[in-house]
């Protein structure tokens, strides 16, 4: 059932894409490029199949009822027909079954996505700190000690833990090809697991409105093979300028900037986690 639905859906999508000209395939929920996006895609397809069954059923009844009873003199006319226990139970039970069929994978996947995606060989995850500022994306690589703006380079086929935070307004970090989004917030850090199957260039975007420059908050996720990734890190280390505190504060000022690369991270770790206001007493926030 699920498989057929998947194929049907894929065919339908292809048709639509063909009809609408060339959709970019590096920013497409329906063309997943990593395990997280694929899990979500399967769930989307499953929910779509269930909903398509309902749509089909209701549309057929709708048309039949209209054709049958739309005539001038309907022989079946019965002005006192106002209920039927059997029918009413049927159409209460059917939605319940559909909801159950949808709820089980929903809950399972909700919990699954909290964990790093599984890879063929157990590769160690890598952490990247993402800061949304007005109106640019800043990426810090704590393990490599480098920093990039408006693009992020990741090793393909390795789970990446994006730690999300914001300077100023809340945004949402979304790379459709790799997986669903999570908010970046000024007072609480969240993490989001993503992974790319293959080397490639994927488009990401801020999904939560942040004011004037919001529409320009597009970034690229460049996935490279392990070897190329290490080469890139070495290249950055040897050629890119250092990121001084002054430069960092300048970047944070409201405005749009192009792509930037730095061979160091500033002292201020980019977080705006001013928790001094809160005596949290060991309270934990976020998805871990």
């Amino acid at each position: 059932m699920k498989k057929i639905g998947l194929k049907l859906f894929a065919a339908l999508t292809l048709l639509l894409v063909a009809l609408t000209g060339c959709a970019a395939d590096n920013q497409n929920v329906l063309n997943p490029q990593g395990p997280v996006a694929r899990t979500q895609f399967h769930l989307i397809v499953w929910s779509f199949v269930l909903m398509a069954i309902v749509v089909l059923g209701v549309f057929i009844i709708f048309v039949v009822v209209l054709v049958k009873n739309g005539k001038k003199n309907n022989p079946n006319y019965d002005p006192e027909d106002d209920g039927n226990v059997k029918l009413e139970i049927t159409w209460t039970v059917i939605p319940i079954i559909i909801v159950i069929l949808l709820a089980i994978p929903t809950v399972k996947t909700t919990y699954d996505l909290e964990k790093p995606p599984k890879t063929a060989e157990a590769k160690t995850p890598m952490t990247i700190v993402v800061t949304s500022a007005d109106w640019k994306w800043i990426f810090r690589y704590p393990e490599q000690n480098i920093e990039t703006v408006n693009y992020v380079t990741i090793p393909a086929d390795r789970p990446i833990k994006f730690e999300l935070q914001a300077k100023g307004a809340m945004n949402s970090f979304w790379v459709p090809s790799l997986g669903g989004q999570a908010y970046t917030m000024p007072n609480m850090q969240m993490s989001l697991w993503l992974q790319a199957d293959h080397p490639g260039d994927y488009i990401g975007r801020g999904a939560n409105f942040t004011g004037k420059g919001f529409a320009h908050m597009q970034f690229n996720v460049i996935a490279k093979s392990d070897k190329d990734f290490n080469k890139w890190v070495q290249h950055v280390k040897s050629t890119a300028p250092r990121l001084t505190e002054e430069k960092y504060n300048e970047i944070l000022k409201p405005g749009t900037v192009g792509r930037m690369t730095f061979s160091s991270t500033p002292k201020d770790d980019g977080a705006d986690l001013d928790m001094s206001g809160m005596d949290m007493g060991g309270m934990h926030h976020g998805k871990h």
Binding site: S47, M51, T106, G179
Partner: peptide, 19 residues
């Protein structure tokens, strides 16, 4: 309504949210 049910699927909503 039915796309609303699709949106109710939290993990799928990560892909639909604000789009």
């Amino acid at each position: 309504g039915l796309t609303g049910v699709m949106l109710a699927v939290a993990p799928a909503d990560y892909q639909y949210h604000n789009s």
